[in-house]
């Protein structure tokens, strides 16, 4: 577009202004700092012990070896067991699948009931539930031990599943309630005039419209439950310790010579599941934590 009146003064230079160099310089330095631990984990896990003793944590491996990974996965010892982290991995998987499934099913139905079928008193319980999310877990730890023991679930996998379901409920219920509330109420009314009931509307109308929020909830729960340490260490027996607990026991065990490369391989292995989910899900992960953080 030609303009008769040209702007006065020099045209501002784009790309390489001083402000931009500062901006990008700062961001790159910060990004390197944040990326450093991941880099350290990777390079350490690929070095042999002699190389580690000679160098420092940042030097790249001269001779790449996958031995530490193999050892971490299948040979590392916790106490008398020497079958590696693989046991913890499979334990975590067995805990994860039912916990994620159960907590999402319960919370989504719950959020749906709260959003669309408001009944007297529902808001009171919901408020308690949300406030409950702020109570330090430490206050509730022991009584839950008693409850689980009474139910015969203490130390078992299902006991931990139950605990994860209970403590995941506030945030997930909030997430689903807010999502369902945002769906136009007239849609719900139309379905009622069409003769659909509580479950009919949930399965036929709401569920097909809400796949994104289910994915968000799943990301939230998978990372949350996988990363849990406290509940795992309290409510399970050593044979079914989740991966985080086993990892800590391997790395922080006082017996024997410290094998830093194996430790870092083990640490990386444990972080791999949430990292893969994080890098694969991108925006949805951000949406999940934003939904969890900024209350609706």
């Amino acid at each position: 577009m030609d303009n008769a009146i040209t702007p006065r003064g020099p045209k501002p230079r784009r790309r390489l202004s001083r402000a931009n160099i500062m901006l990008y310089g700062t961001l790159i330095v910060v990004a390197m700092y944040y990326a450093l631990p991941l880099y350290v984990m990777v390079v350490t896990s690929l070095k042999g012990m002699p190389e580690i003793r000679l160098g420092n944590v940042f030097s790249p491996p001269v001779e790449i070896t996958f031995q530490p990974w193999v050892k971490a996965w299948s040979e590392a010892c916790t106490g008398i067991n020497c079958d590696g982290l693989s046991r913890g991995f499979w334990n975590s998987v067995q805990i994860l699948i039912p916990s994620v499934f159960l907590s999402i099913v319960i919370a989504s139905i719950n959020g749906y009931a709260l959003a669309n079928w408001r009944f007297k008193g529902a808001d009171v319980f919901f408020t308690i539930l949300i406030l409950g999310a702020f109570i330090p877990y430490q206050v509730m730890l022991y009584p839950i031990v008693i409850i689980l023991r009474e139910m015969g679930l203490y130390g078992s996998l299902w006991g931990l599943v139950l605990v994860h379901t209970v403590f995941g409920m506030p945030i997930l219920t909030l997430l689903f309630r807010n999502y369902f509330t945002a769906i136009p109420e007239e849609l719900f009314k139309a379905a009622r005039v069409d003769g659909a009931g509580f479950w009919g509307i949930y399965f036929r109308i709401m569920l097909p419209m809400s796949l994104p929020i289910f994915v968000v909830a799943m990301i939230l729960q998978v990372t949350g439950i996988w990363n849990d340490f406290l509940f795992g260490v309290i409510y399970t027996r050593p044979e079914i310790y989740p991966m985080t607990v086993q990892l800590n026991n391997i790395v922080n065990s006082v017996q024997g010579v410290k094998e830093y490369n194996v430790n870092m391989a083990a640490t990386l292995l444990t972080g791999l599941v949430p990292l893969i989910i994080y890098f694969a899900s991108g925006k949805l992960f951000v949406r999940g934590i934003a939904a969890g953080a900024v209350k609706g």
């Binding site: 136009p184 849609l187 009314k189 139309a190 005039v193 069409d194 003769g195 659909a196 036929r204 097909p208």
Partner: peptide
């Protein structure tokens, strides 16, 4: 509502987004 012998039309149309027109009519 479904047992009253009424039909209702809403301001926001309130069509079920995942169903076809036919599905909406027959739901």
């Amino acid at each position: 509502p479904s047992g009253r012998g009424i039909g209702m039309v809403f301001q926001s149309y309130a069509l079920y987004p995942q169903m076809t027109v036919e599905g909406n009519l027959s739901f």
